[in-house]
Design a protein around this nucleic acid. Structure first.
Lengths: 193, 193
DNA sequence: GTCTATATCATGATAGAC
DNA sequence: GTCTATCATGATATAGAC
């Protein structure tokens, strides 16, 4: 849905269009001209707001990660036990996937190293680090069996993450929230003390 | 390691070079000239053996999936119980990741939809279907709790798959086989009857 | 079957008027 | 800050000799 003439906030409009086009066709199948057309701005305007094409992707990625960090912090503020926090996080991940699949896909599934050489892989981004820390705390409290925190968080959230990927790939038909209980039971069993 | 002059089987040599370059730099950051140079053959030779660049990726992908299917069949032939089969499969996946990380990465991590519009997503490929079927059989035998087979197989292998991804991203330091027991205990707990 | 040389084209990025 | 017009590069793919 390309905007026709003037655009309120060109920068945001460009980021929104880039997110859509990058996830639909991929980064390399999307030209800066495509983004300009879709966003309803000119090439010149884009290059005024962003250094280059890579900078668009970088800004997008940073913004989405920051949003994610905020959500995790909100969850940590609302719940105290590790079990409740992890459940709420899994629920949130499923909801975000349904409501903003493109955001989720860009964060998770895009191979950022291909077009963001400087960016660290997703697994080592702050949100993932927070998930690992959450699980590590659970071990201290005796809620989670004692083991390597990396293994524990991967096993706890791995099923959910793979299911999210399957959903993004349209391999899974049912909306994720309807599967939450089943997945949670399996996931928590995997690591519960 | 580009070969200097004549090459035994140019087709195989091209596929091997493509696998290396695609995984190191990404599909779109690799030109056909790069592949030619690395494989020690000419552009003309490449276009004699392959229809176009996409055809190289397609052949590579199909070959790797076929190999994977063979390995799974071998495991099914060697083991009878679902538990033993799944364990052997996880072990094999970990070993393959260490021994042929590029093959694993190309199959799993590359976003094939970007450059293989016709290919189905990895999750719906034959090896993944075989994994789901393996788990479904386990339910009939009473080894695995009764639930949606898609959920069960995702929860059973999700942790291992995510760990493989973390290893390919060099986020995980330790070789995967050394983590096998810990991951297996968690994974089997998740779905065991 | 393999090679070199080349056609064709799209893309990222810039210049410079308004 | 936004726009149009344009440049320069490097890619895919082909032609045609050997």
């Amino acid at each position: 849905m390309p905007r026709k003439h003037r655009v309120a906030d060109p920068r945001e409009q460009v980021l929104a269009s880039a997110l859509r086009l990058f996830t639909r066709r991929g980064y390399f199948n999307t030209s800066v001209h495509d983004i300009a057309r879709h966003a309803g701005v000119s090439i010149g305007s884009i290059y005024h707001h962003f250094r280059d094409k890579e900078d668009i992707a970088r800004s997008l990625y940073a913004g989405l990660l920051a949003q994610m960090v905020e959500r995790i912090e909100a969850i940590q503020a609302r719940h105290r036990t590790t079990r409740a926090r992890c459940y709420a996080l899994m629920e949130a991940l499923f909801e975000i996937t349904e409501e903003e699949p493109e955001a989720m896909e860009f964060m998770l599934y895009a191979k950022h190293r291909e077009f963001l050489p400087s960016a660290t892989p997703v697994c080592s981004s702050k949100p993932f680090a927070m998930m690992r820390e959450m699980v590590r705390e659970g071990m201290e409290r005796g809620e989670v069996r004692s083991m390597d925190p990396m293994i524990a968080s991967t096993c706890l959230f791995g099923g959910a993450m793979r299911l999210i990927m399957a959903r993004l790939d349209r391999v899974l038909r049912e909306p994720l929230p309807s599967q939450l209980e089943a997945v949670w039971v399996c996931s928590w069993r995997a690591v519960a003390a």
